[in-house]
Structures are given as C-alpha cells and as structure tokens.
C-alpha cells in the first residue's frame, strides 16, 4: 500500500508563494540572545540548511519555528497564516499534520515503550484513523520505505540500532505526508557509514514527496548534499545566506570563510 496525496488532501498551492515567511524572529534567554532578527522565506519543495558553530542559535531558531518555544519578537507566516497568533490547539494540530520534527536523538522523537508499528501509526491515529488493519498496513509500508524489514513491525525501538531508530523516527514523521519538516542534526549521533546511508534515504524522500525542509547541522557535507539554500549563523544572528553552492564556494562573510576553510572545524 502506498500513501497517496488524496489521503490527506492539501490545498492547491502556488509554488511562487513562500510556504513559510519569517521576519525578525528573536528569542532571548534572560539577557542572553538565543537568536535575533532572523528573517527568511522558504518556498515549497525547498531545503534550507542552517549551519553555525555550537551555541550560535540554530536549535533555538528551529524550536521557535516549530512552536516548541515561544519567540519574543517577530512574525512567522505559514501558508498565509500567522503562526504566533494561532490558538495552541491549531498550532499543535499543525504539528501533527502539516509539520514534522525530527530530533537529533531518536529517543526524543520516538516512544520507546511502543512498537515500531505503533510509533508510525500514532500520527495517523492522532488525526482520526480508526481502522487497525489500514493503520498497520501503512506502518508496514513506511517501514519498507525507510528500509526496515516488515517483520520488525511489532518490535520496540529499544531493540533497534541507532541508524534504524533514526529511520523509524523519520517514518513516524512522514507517514501523514507533512509539507514542512524540521530536522535538528538528524545524522548527528551516527557512524559515518550509517550517516551516508541515511542521507541518501532522506534525499530520496525529500525529492519524492516534494517536502520543504529546514535542516540544522554542523556538517557542511550534509548541506552540500541536501540543501538548496544555506543560512550561516553566528552569535544568534544570520551572517550570510544564499544558494548553498554559492555560499560554500564563494563565501562573502569572514566568518563563513573561516567556516568553509578547514581551519575552523565545526
């Protein structure tokens, strides 16, 4: 069984209109800046990479965008709707339908006490699926799409390797065909060979599903492979943004120059 877009009907959308518009987003932790004055547009089907050294505000920005934290200032428009003015019910609903969030640590994004099938099925049940056979069918289908054997459907994630757990987390997030996926260091804790395989998988899914993605990473190889556009952050602020290849091959800002040179390993 495959998921058709008719399962979760989506509004017709104009590819020339940004899916997400962010203006002057600012979040402070007391006197300390989490992120400040961040503005950008994200278009349908676009992958935006966010890079920067540790503490530069990448995770803060991502969690404010996803509504996990409340920004102090600024505006976020998703598909024409003012996200910060939305009721919490609507925002959380968006979080389980149109949006998805992949955590660096799969333990933060999975229910470790629930079977792989239950993990994938949760979002379906959260939006009203009430047919066990169909939920299970979709779960098995999605396990296949992230290269997990169907006979693991009743196993708990605790019996999975790190790479499998991360693939399960991805399946759990994509099963309702979201339009916008937030990822915070999705390949972070994995071995290099496992990372490469996961990246290939992600690239295929992003392309096939036409996903819009905002991906935070330390790893310039990840953005080189996945991101159409790149945003470089330092001390909570965006110091440079543009097409990925342009930024990496011809960095304008001194900090980006340091970042792409092998001198500064992020």
């Amino acid at each position: 069984m495959t998921l058709h877009s008719t399962d979760f009907p989506q509004k017709m959308r104009d590819p020339d209109q940004p899916l997400l518009t962010v203006e002057n987003l600012t979040k402070r932790y007391g006197a300390r800046i989490g992120c400040a004055d961040v503005s950008f547009d994200l278009y349908p089907g676009e992958v935006l990479g966010i890079v920067g050294e540790s503490g530069s505000g990448k995770s803060t920005l991502l969690s404010c965008l996803a509504g996990h934290q409340r920004a102090d200032l600024g505006r976020i428009a998703y598909d024409g709707r003012d996200v910060l003015a939305m009721s919490e019910t609507d925002r959380r609903r968006l979080g389980r339908t149109d949006w998805a969030y992949v955590h660096q640590n799969p333990r933060d994004g999975l229910r470790m006490g629930v079977s792989a099938g239950g993990n994938v099925g949760e979002r379906l049940m959260a939006v009203g699926a009430r047919h066990y056979g169909q939920i299970r069918g979709k779960a098995v289908d999605w396990l296949g799409r992230v290269e997990i054997a169907a006979d693991r459907v009743d196993d708990r994630p605790s019996s999975f390797s790190g790479g499998m757990q991360q693939r399960l987390q991805i399946a759990r997030n994509l099963v309702t065909s979201p339009r916008l996926v937030f990822m915070d260091e999705p390949t972070g804790g994995l071995d290099v060979s496992v990372q490469a395989r996961l990246l290939d998988l992600l690239r295929g899914l992003v392309r096939d599903m036409g996903l819009s993605v905002i991906i935070v990473t330390h790893d310039l190889a990840v953005v080189r492979l996945l991101a159409h556009r790149l945003m470089v952050m330092k001390s909570g602020r965006v110091v440079e943004q543009g097409l990925t290849d342009q930024v990496l091959d011809d960095p304008q800002h001194a900090y980006t120059q340091l970042l792409v040179s092998s001198v500064l390993q992020v």
């Binding site: 629930v114 099938g117 979002r123 049940m125």
Partner: peptide
Amino acid sequence: EYGLMHVKLYE
C-alpha cells in the same frame, strides 16, 4: 488530543 489512547489499543 486523544490519539494516544488508540496507540494503547493498537499495541
């Protein structure tokens, strides 16, 4: 948000 109750029954 009661999807979780059905996760329990699913399990």
